[in-house]
Simulated scan of single mutants.
Amino acid sequence: MASPGERAGEPSDRGRPVNDVQLSKFLSYICRHGAEKKGLTVQEGGYINVDDILELREARKNGYSVSDVQRVVANYPKQRFSLRSKPNDDGKLQICANQGHSLEVKGLDLVPILRPEEAPVVVHGTYRRAWEQIKKQGLSKMSRNHVHFAAGLPGEDGVISGMRSSCQILIYIDMKKALEGGLLFYRSANNVILCSGDENGFISTKYFEKVYDITKGVKLDY
C-alpha cells in the first residue's frame, strides 16, 4: 500500500492536487493538539467531526475533501488515525488520533498492560543530543500526555509506530520493575505503548533495563 509520501499529488474531489504528507501533518496537529484552539469539539475517544475540520481556513485553502481524509487514514503506514461514523447522526465521519495527544481526551481507545509478559519489549527511541538530559532526569512526557514506546524495533513484525527509524539511542524498559513501581502502561490501537510516568510525568532511569547507542554499536551506562 502506498504511503502518503508516495501520493503527494493525488487529485482532490475539489479539483486540485493534494499533498498527503501535508494533510497528514495537519490532521495530526488538529487531532492531537489544536482542536480546541480552533474551536472544534472533541468528543469521547478523541473523535472530531471531519466536516468541521474541513471548514477550517487551512483545509479550505488547500481544498481538502472527505475522500482526501479517508485516503490518508487508509494509506498512512503508521496507522496514526481512526475513522468512524458519527453515532446517531446520519453516518457522518469522525476522526481521532490513536495516540500522541497533548489535549485532554476522555475514553481514548487504550488497553491497559497489567503484566510484563503482555509487553515483552518496550523500547523508547531518542537521539544522542537528548541522552545526557534523559540520563539525569529520566524520560519525560513533556507537553504530551504520555511517553511513547514501540513494541519492538521499526520494521519488526507488528511494529508500525512508536519511534522514528532515524533514532540513535534505544532505551528498553524493565516492565516487571516499572509495573511493580506503580507506573501505568497502555497499548494504543496502532500498537504504540504509552506511559504517563510518575506524578511529575517522568519515568526514572531505575526502570531502564538497558540502553544502546545503535549508531556506535555500544551499550550506554546511566
Results as ranks from 00 to 15, higher is better:
N145V: 03
W131Y: 14
M163G: 02
G138P: 07
G158P: 01
G155I: 12
I134K: 02
E132Q: 12
L139E: 03
S166G: 08
A151Y: 00
A151R: 13
R128I: 10
A151L: 05
F149C: 10
W131T: 10
M163T: 02
G138A: 13
S161V: 05
D157A: 12
S165G: 12
G152S: 08
E132T: 07
V159S: 01
A150G: 09
A130F: 15
R164D: 14
V159K: 00
M163W: 03
K136P: 04
L139Y: 12
Q133H: 09
I160D: 00
V147G: 00
R144H: 13
E132H: 13
P154L: 09
A130E: 07
A150F: 01
V159Q: 04
E132L: 09
G155T: 07
A151Q: 13
H146R: 06
D157C: 02
L139S: 04
A130K: 08
K135D: 06
G152E: 05
I134S: 00
Q133P: 00
A150R: 00
E156M: 06
S161R: 06
R144G: 08
K135S: 15
S165A: 14
S161N: 15
I134W: 04
K136W: 05
R164N: 15
K141A: 13
R129G: 03
E132P: 01
G155Q: 02
A151I: 12
I160C: 09
D157Q: 13
R144P: 01
L153T: 03
Q133E: 10
H148V: 03
L153N: 06
M163Y: 05
R144K: 11
E156W: 03
L139I: 14
